[in-house]
Design a protein around this nucleic acid. Sequence first.
RNA 1: GCUGAUGUGGCACAGAUGGUAGCGCAAUUGAUUCGUAAUCAAUAGGUCGGGAGUUCGAGUCUCCCCAUCAGCUCCA
Length: 637
Amino acid sequence: MNQNVEVTLPDGSIKEVQKGTTILDVARGISEGLARVIVGAKWNGELTDLSETLESDGHLALLKVDEEDGKHFFWHTSAHLLAHAIQNLFPDTKFAIGPAIKEGFYYDVETEHRFTPEDLEKLETEMKKLAKQNFAMEKEILTREAALELFREKGEDYKVELIQDLPEDAEISIYRQGDFIDLCKGPHLLGTKRIKAIKLMSIAGAYWRGDENRTMLQRIYGITFEKKKELDAYLERIEEAKKRDHRRLGKELGLFVMHKEGPGFPFFLPKGMVIRNLLQDLWKREHILRGYGEIMTPLILNEDLWHTSGHWDHYQDNMYFTKIDEEDYAIKPMNCPGSMLAYKSGRYSYRDLPLRLGELGLVHRHEAAGALHGLFRVRSFTQDDAHIFMTPDQIKDEIKGVMKFVDEIYAIFGFKYNVEVSTRPEDSMGTDEEWEHATASLVSALDEMEQPYTLNEGDGAFYGPKIDIHLEDAIGRTWQCGTVQLDFQMPQRFELSYVGADNQKHVPIMIHRVLFGSIERFIGILIEHYAGKFPVWLSPVQVSVLPISDKYNAYAQEVMTSLQRAGVRVDMDQRTEKIGYKIREAQLQKTPYMIIVGEKEVESKQVAIRNRDEGDLGAMELNDFIARIHEEVEKYQ
RNA sequence: GCUGAUGUGGCACAGAUGGUAGCGCAAUUGAUUCGUAAUCAAUAGGUCGGGAGUUCGAGUCUCCCCAUCAGCUCCA
C-alpha cells in the first residue's frame, strides 16, 4: 500500500510526501523561511488551514498574507479574536456571524449593551492582549447533535439556528482559541500572534441574515495587519478617500447643494450645470450617430397608466401621487410607460424597426430616508433612458449594439466596469417561457461578444431580466450605472404592434436601457473619480485669468475676451490681492489653467501659463495657448 | 424604514459638573499695487436644527419631530 501522496505545486513540480503530513510540514520541506511567512493554503482550490493533513494527491498553493486569499485567513481569525475579546469584556453577548470581508472583517452580535467608541478602544486593547498569548486555532469536527447541544448549552441561539439550517451532509466544525469556541468552517491562521496592528473601525446595525423583518444586531467592523505601518497606510488611504467625497467636493467647488427642505432632491449650481450640460450634449451627439430619436414625456400622468404598466402592483411604495381635478395622477418613477404611449401614437411596419427612442427623463422615486447619499442615491434624478422597439430576430444585434455603446461611452472617462446578468425576481409578471427566452437572449448576446459576466439570480426588474453594468470608481467601490433590460411584458400590456412581412399584426419586443444610469449619480462618480480635477473638456472653468495687480486688469480683460471668443470657459480674479493668493484660490478650485498677466506680458503681448499639476509653464502666445486648450478638449470628445 | 451617532454664524470647529456664546477661514471696509499655494488692520455676522417640557435660569438635562453621517435593507 502506498503511504505517500503526490502534491502538485503551482509551478507544476510534484513533491511526494508521506500521507498524513500537514501542509505546514510540506512548506517546511520547501524552506523554513516560506513556512514562516505563509498564512494558509489553497488545497485543490479550497482555502485550507496549514494544520490540515494531506490524505490524497492534489494541488497545493501556499498563501502569503499579502495575497488576497491570504488576507482572508488573517481577517477571519481576527474576527474570532474580536469575538473572544467581546466574550471576555461583555459576557452576556450572543454571537451571530463574523466573516472576513474585502477590507477587514466584522462580527454581528446581540447584547443589551450599546457599544460605544470607547468600548471599541477597550476591545482593541483586549484583542492585542489575547493575540499575544498566541492561542492555537484548534479545529474540531462535531456531529450535528453534539454541535447543537454545545451551542444550546451556551445559549447561542443564532449559532443553533445556523446549525439547523446547514444541509444534511455538511461537515460541522468548531474552532477553539483558549476558552472561546465558535461554530466555523474555517479557514484560519495557525495561531493569533501574527495579528499585531488592530483597529476597530465602526459600530453599525445589521439585520440578522440581512432580513429587515428580523432582529437588528450590532455589527463591529475592524481591520488588522501584521505591521503597524500597514495599518497606518490603510488609515491614510481612507483619509485620502474622504477628500474625494463628492458631497464635500460638490460644496467646495460649487457644483451642487442639498437643503433640508428637499432631502434627496439635489440643487445644481452654475458650475455643476456646466458639467451636466456637457454630459447631456455628449449623450445627444452620440445618440444621433447611432440612429436614436429623442423624445420628452410628461412628469405627471394619469394613475390608469400605472395600472396598465404594472407599476401600481409592483412599484407603488416608491411612487409619489397627486390629484388633478379629483382625478388620481402619479409622478413618473420610470420613463417607460410614457415611451410606450409615444410609440402607440404611430403605425409601424417591421421595416420601421428597430425604433430607438431616447429620453433624458426626470423621474421621482420615494427612496427610504436612510438610503439617501449625496448624488449617489437621490429621490429625483434624470435617467439617460432609451427604449428600443424591435422584432424578435433583432434582439441580439440590438443588445450587442447597446453593449458596444456602453463600452465606448465609459472609455471616454477611463472607467473599468463589470457586467452582471440578473434573472427573474419573485415579484414579477409574465410566463416562465417568456422569461427563459428573454434571459437566453441576453446571455447569448454577451457570449457572442465574449463579454464575461456574473449571474445574479432573482435580481431582475419585475418586467424582465437585465444586464447591469457596474463601474469601478476611483477608490475601488462599484456603482451600478448602465443597465440593459429586456421586456416582453409591457408591449403586450400596452397592446403595441407592428405589421410584419406576413401582413399580420405582431407585438414588438422592447429594450429599456441607460448608459450613465442617472446623470446625478454619474456626476457624483465623476467627481470622486477625478477627485474634483476634471479633465479640461469637463472643467466648469477651464482657465482663470489672474492679473498681478489692477494696473493690468485691462489687458487681462482683453485676454479673457479672446478666450471667450475661442469658446474657452474662463473667469478672472480682479481683486486687489497678491498673485500668490489668487493662485491659491484657483488651485483650490482645481482650475486646469491659470493665466498670469503682469508688466512683462503686457509688454510682450503674451500670457504666462500655470497648470494646476505642472505649475509654471512660462510665457507663450495666446493663440498657441488657445490651440493647446482646443487640442486637449478634442482629445476627449 | 431599521440600528447607532451627530446637528453651534457661509465653511471647518471650541464651548467640564445647567448661569443668557467663542476662534480660524470666508465676507465687508480701509491701507498695500504685489510675479506662481494665504499682506495687514478694523468691522459686521449666531432664534446654538425645530417644537414641547424640567428649572429662578438650558447650547448644555428630558421627550417628540426634522435633517445629516456610518452601516443594514433597497436601488439608477
